[in-house]
Design a protein around this nucleic acid. Structure first.
Lengths: 340, 340
DNA sequence: GTTTACTCTGGGAACGTTCACAGAAAATCC
DNA sequence: GGATTTTCTGTGAACGTTCCCAGAGTAAAC
């Protein structure tokens, strides 16, 4: 290619050594801010670095130090969900913030199919990254096993793992769901239903468990409808089904804010007032919540903090800390607004 | 750290050579799928690779080949917008799909402040990546200049650049806005307003230009309200302002779907029927559009394709192609639903 | 004044690949 | 059957760092 011939060879540490009249070893020490360097040498090196426009070659350094200063963020979700899920973006930002502050790169791996899954294992084994943060909704994820076997510093975001060696950062979906359901019950509702979703994921099944626990004896299995996805459409379909099954329903716990939004639109359509006729609560405190009319009561999930904590956990392991067995559950918070 | 002592040294190409009884050079040829390797040697090497669990050391390869097989995705947006913008996620997925198919890594750099901007330039110069894809909403972005100076293979997503050397992939916001406005006029509306947003970005100002062009002599500056962000709240505030200024308004072009959603909720509040009393159109064809009632007529923006094309453009340059001067504008499509 | 400790420097070796080259072996050509 | 081409293989060198060691100089301790 034409541009290669015109682009000058990049300056190396040897150029800096030559120009500054200081040995390669000392230049390296200056570059890494080590002790035992005279001021005189430091100044000379810094001047030479500027003069020749030196910037360190990452590959060479990685080769000799046997690390890459990069951490993978593995997003193991069907592609469509990556966009739907209001938390993933925040987790990503949190992770990125912590890593870049520690001068680490974030390498994003988005994978869907089984084929990809093998590819990822390959990367992780290949030393391309020093550690990994895995976003995965399901327990028993094949990636989990690969990570545990590799013994690479890692952390899961989202749910307890089967592998005690790999720590996780998550929230207690069961307790949170129970909490907001109890709060809904405390408003005096008698016939409370749930639009459950994503029961193949821990978050989905745990939220249903929490709901069941809260209701106790008052639990009526007929008032639970089940759908595969956390989505607006799930809310639309689920609310219709609930209204047909139990026209006297007066409270609904929607498995996510998006679900709640769909449900509220159906309620409006059916002429039921919220919170007058029926109280409704969601989960996530995503941008959906404020956009509903009336504003949605929901559980705030600290997505940004999840990402930050996971990144920090990996950095700690990289610094030599033992990974805590088990994991960390971050606190959720009930945000009570006007929908119930 | 304890785990280091237990973790065995990783197998190298030398181990493969030793076990297979084939020389290092030939092993390398097998690994890279080069010609001039006997079947016998190939089989022996493949067996040995499996036996010792060999996986190539990326750093060593990068060092000698002088490339990293990684491309940076630079997202230059305030953090909050990264989440709000319905297109960024799709662009990211498109980019990721193309890169990973070509066996390239995607390194995501999200930056906000000026400090970060310097850091990114440093990475790009440091050979950490072979190329870069830059998502930037504004022309005149400082990153643009840095990229152009570096002469590193790159592509912009989103808008024309000031730097002719760096190609861009975008859409023609002006033409698209003009198109949908004309379509709205064709439904017989007489008093059409616009809720304009993000006029500091090319997309925002171009959409306003398109609107102005479409209306021609019928353009009434009083019927344009301006807000800083593409958001639901902008739609709420903007629609109220328009209704106060011109109670007889019968058509609205909202600068984005989110804006349109906010506007529609205000219209419902004010008792104006859509599309009976007033027709409304948006922009993006994001998940907002279908979620509105009635479903929103809007302009479909091929976000996934934008990401794909940009990635392909960078890969082509990496393969030796000359970057096209100027750029590529992808087609948009009017999606006509029920809101107008 | 000798030991001991600390500070600073330079250069060899190594990290794990790929590439270029030379030469052997096999296939093809006249 | 010799010359030429093609296929295949092994080895030395290089990529640009960091780490380690040896040694020189200087300061502190006895």
């Amino acid at each position: 290619m034409a541009r290669d011939s015109t682009r000058p060879r990049r300056a190396t540490i040897h150029d800096v050594a030559r120009v500054s009249g200081i040995s390669r070893g000392t230049v390296s020490r200056v570059l890494n801010g080590e002790r035992y360097v005279s001021d005189q040498a430091r100044v000379a090196v810094e001047a030479a670095v500027k003069e020749v426009g030196y910037v360190r070659n990452t590959a060479a350094r990685n080769l000799v130090t046997q690390r890459s200063r990069a951490v993978a963020l593995v997003v193991h979700e069907p592609h469509s969900l990556v966009l739907e899920d209001p938390n993933i973006g925040n987790i990503l930002l949190g992770t990125n913030a912590v890593l870049s502050e520690a001068d680490y790169q974030m390498v994003t791996l988005i994978l869907d199919s089984q084929r990809d899954s093998d590819r990822v294992a390959e990367y992780l084994r290949g030393g391309f990254v020093d550690g990994a943060i895995i976003l995965s909704a399901r327990s028993g994820d094949p990636i989990a096993l690969a990570i545990a076997q590799l013994g690479i510093p890692a952390a899961f975001v989202g749910h307890p793992t089967d592998t005690p060696d790999v720590p996780f950062i998550g929230i207690d979906n069961t307790a949170a769901a129970r909490g907001i359901t109890e709060r809904l019950m405390a408003t005096g509702r008698r016939r409370i239903g749930m639009i459950a979703a994503a029961l193949d994921r821990d978050s989905g099944s745990d939220r249903l468990s929490g709901f069941t626990l809260a209701l106790g004896d008052a639990f009526d299995p007929d008032l639970v409808v089940r759908y595969p996805l956390y989505s607006y459409q799930t809310g639309v379909d689920g609310m219709r089904e609930l209204l047909e099954r139990a026209p006297d329903i007066d409270g609904v716990f929607a498995a996510s804010d998006a679900v709640a939004a769909g449900a509220m639109d159906v309620l409006r359509e059916w002429g039921r007032s919220v919170p007058g006729d029926i109280g409704i609560v969601g989960f996530d405190d995503s941008s959906w919540a404020l956009r509903c009319t009336p504003a949605l009561s929901t559980v705030r999930q600290p997505a940004d903090a999840l990402g930050r904590r996971a990144a920090q956990q990996v950095l700690d392991q990289l610094a030599g800390a033992e990974p805590p067995s088990g994991g960390t559950l971050l606190d959720t918070e009930i945000v009570w607004r006007d929908s119930a």
